[in-house]
């Protein structure tokens, strides 16, 4: 389907926010799902770029994505202007499973893994008031959307160099004695591993959103797999994921 670019904003040196509107099954979106975007008619760049949905507004019929420029495809995407159209497929994949009502929840995002948690937090707000948001960035210059999250709940920020928030890592801000029942996270694989290790021995349901190079994005090619916890099976990140219960997968 073709969506109109209705806004594009530069958030940090290499991170961009893109707003889209047009015919799309907004009602069907589950927080944590992604769209697959065709780059420049698919001529030189034949693989679509999978980008998580950061926010969906069913009333305004719009959705927001945030992406980091990592190569020529995302570079092209960052050069789109209001009025341009994008050929997209979606929503794709399996998103976050929401917790039981009034649960104690912590949401942990790292870097470009922060935006996919925004729609989730919006939905969590309808379910519980006991919500802690922990965001991690490399440094102050890389921080984005902190205020946006702050409007939804208490936000704790860690930066590696301490230039914003607490110096250190997201794990330094995650109190394992706080009796959280659910943890939702998206970020670098190393951060997800560290979180899981950090939470070892406490009774918490953890859900993580994973990333991998994709080809088809719909589950047909088996390009983007991850291993099950016992390493005997593979799951497709684009189909069974990108969100998994962290007990199910080998991080």
């Amino acid at each position: 389907m073709l969506l109109d670019v209705t806004g594009i904003t530069n958030l940090t040196s290499n991170i961009w926010e893109l707003c889209l509107s047009g015919p799309f099954p907004y009602q069907r979106v589950q927080a944590g799902q992604f769209i697959n975007i065709l780059i420049n008619q698919g001529k030189d760049h034949i693989l679509r770029r999978p980008i998580s949905i950061a926010e969906v507004d069913t009333n305004k019929k719009s959705l927001t994505i945030v992406f980091r420029v990592v190569g020529q495809g995302t570079e092209w995407l960052s050069q789109r202007q209001v009025g341009d159209q994008l050929n997209i497929i979606g929503p794709l994949g399996t998103g976050f499973q929401l917790p039981a009502k009034n649960s104690k929840v912590v949401v942990v995002g790292g870097g470009i893994g922060v935006p996919p948690l925004y729609q989730l937090v919006k939905e969590l707000k309808q379910i519980t008031n006991d919500l802690t948001i922990i965001l991690g960035f490399r440094n102050q210059a890389d921080c984005f959307w902190v205020e946006r999250f702050a409007k939804l709940g208490q936000v704790l920020v860690a930066t590696n160099d301490g230039s914003f928030g607490t110096k250190g890592f997201v794990t330094d801000l995650l109190d394992t004695k706080a009796n959280y029942e659910y943890l939702y996270s998206c970020g670098p694989r190393g951060m997800l591993q560290a979180l899981k290790n950090h939470c070892q021995g406490i009774n918490i349901q953890g859900y993580v959103s994973l990333e991998e190079r994709m080809a088809c994005g719909v589950g047909a090619c088996y390009g983007c797999v991850c291993s099950s916890a016992d390493r005997k099976l593979h799951y497709r990140i684009c189909k069974e994921g990108p969100v998994f219960n962290w007990e199910e997968v080998a991080l």
């Binding site: 991998e212 190079r213 080809a215 088996y222 390009g223 983007c224 797999v225």
Partner: peptide, 17 residues
């Protein structure tokens, strides 16, 4: 199970798998 990831990557007007 197949090979470890990354299993796919884009190249000019094509891909490697």
């Amino acid at each position: 199970l197949g090979n470890p990831t990354p299993r796919v990557t884009e190249v000019t007007a094509g891909m490697l798998n």
